[in-house]
């Protein structure tokens, strides 16, 4: 499988400013040295709880946020150095779908205008062709061409997310970063959108980075899954490996916390004590050591590196 995207040592620090002159008092290390690769045609899921840096990672990759350090290599080209026209051209191939279908569509633009805008910006088609392409695409994502002149408020949440997906697809991208695309939707609508995304992937040979806090959804859609905790990737493995043989104590706890829709099932659950520490002041050594049941002395001082334990299964833990 060809590597489409390679993320190396990605860091994104947000300065904490305080005082009258806004002096920098410290940094929130939202993403702290994350590396992974994405193969062509696959779906890489990224899971984690709020504040773990999964959305910041997604946004830094397509440079909606400027990374503090690290490289993002897409089809052999380093995106972090690109500027202006070059960056814009590259963005044709890298699109994003946002979580909130209510906030991410301009309420004053018709669906047609929303979907044609990327084509105009990238100069991809003439007026009549643009209109045709938009109408074709509306059909592909499960809407109809009658929706062309409607406004976003006339649509339900699920339909809006279809529009959001269509907007990402219109430039025929290679990679789509989907940031919690189904979290705001009802269960019965969520499955429609997940099925649509799978169909589109097949039809257009798309590669997805699928970011979500929902472990069941990520299992369903992904080929490989990465687990993040406090700005770091703690485990990365093919889906089956990760769900059937989780190795990092955090992944184990996370998986055991998911309520199963089976009332007869009795499970031993690992209940983590306390909350996620603040990313402005993360623990030394392993970021998880304050809540880990297997914590050793070394965990308090040395940060574990991501190591390969079996083929394709990477874990950042001193146990391995």
């Amino acid at each position: 499988m060809n590597t489409l995207l390679e993320v190396k040592g990605l860091k994104k620090y947000f300065p904490i400013r305080a005082g009258l002159l806004g002096k920098t008092q410290g940094f929130v290390k939202a993403v702290d040295d994350v590396s992974f690769t994405v193969h062509e045609g696959e779906t890489l899921g990224i899971v984690g709880e709020s504040g773990c840096g999964k959305s910041t990672t997604g946004r830094s990759i397509i440079r909606l946020l400027e990374p503090t350090a690290g490289d993002v290599v897409f089809k052999g080209q380093n995106l972090t150095g690109l500027k202006g026209e070059e960056l814009r051209k590259m963005r044709r191939d890298l699109q994003i779908v946002f979580q909130d279908p209510y906030a991410s569509l301009n309420p004053r633009m018709t669906v047609g205008a929303i979907l044609e805008e990327p084509l105009k910006i990238h100069g991809l088609a003439g007026t009549t062709e643009r209109r045709q392409r938009v109408k074709d695409l509306l059909d592909i994502v499960g809407l109809t061409e009658h929706h062309y002149n409607r406004y976003p408020h006339e649509f339900s949440g699920g339909q809006r997310q279809r529009i959001g997906i269509a907007r990402a697809l219109i430039t025929k991208p290679k990679l789509i970063v989907a940031d919690e695309p189904v979290s705001a939707l009802d269960v019965s609508i969520q499955s429609q959108i997940l099925n649509l995304m799978k169909d589109l992937q097949e039809q257009f040979q798309l590669t997805y980075i699928f970011i979500s806090h929902d472990l069941s959804v990520v299992r369903h859609i992904s080929d490989r899954v990465g687990v993040m905790y406090l700005g770091r990737m703690v485990e990365l493995a093919p889906k089956h490996e990760l769900y059937d043989n989780p190795q990092h104590p955090y992944t184990q706890a996370l998986l055991s916390a998911v309520p199963h829709p089976d009332p007869r099932e009795v499970r031993e659950r690992i209940i983590l004590s306390g909350d996620v520490p603040s990313p402005a002041n993360p623990p030394t050594g392993c970021a998880f050591h304050t809540r880990c049941h297997a914590c050793m002395e070394i965990c308090k001082t040395d940060r574990p590196e991501l190591k390969q334990t079996t083929e394709g299964h990477w874990v950042a833990c001193h146990l391995y």
Binding site: E49, S50, H213, L215, A253, L254, S256, A257, V258, P259, R269, I271, L272, D275, V276
Partner: peptide, 10 residues
């Protein structure tokens, strides 16, 4: 979050 949810349900 799911780990906190587990605490609260407990």
């Amino acid at each position: 979050d799911v780990t906190i949810q587990a605490q609260i349900l407990d």
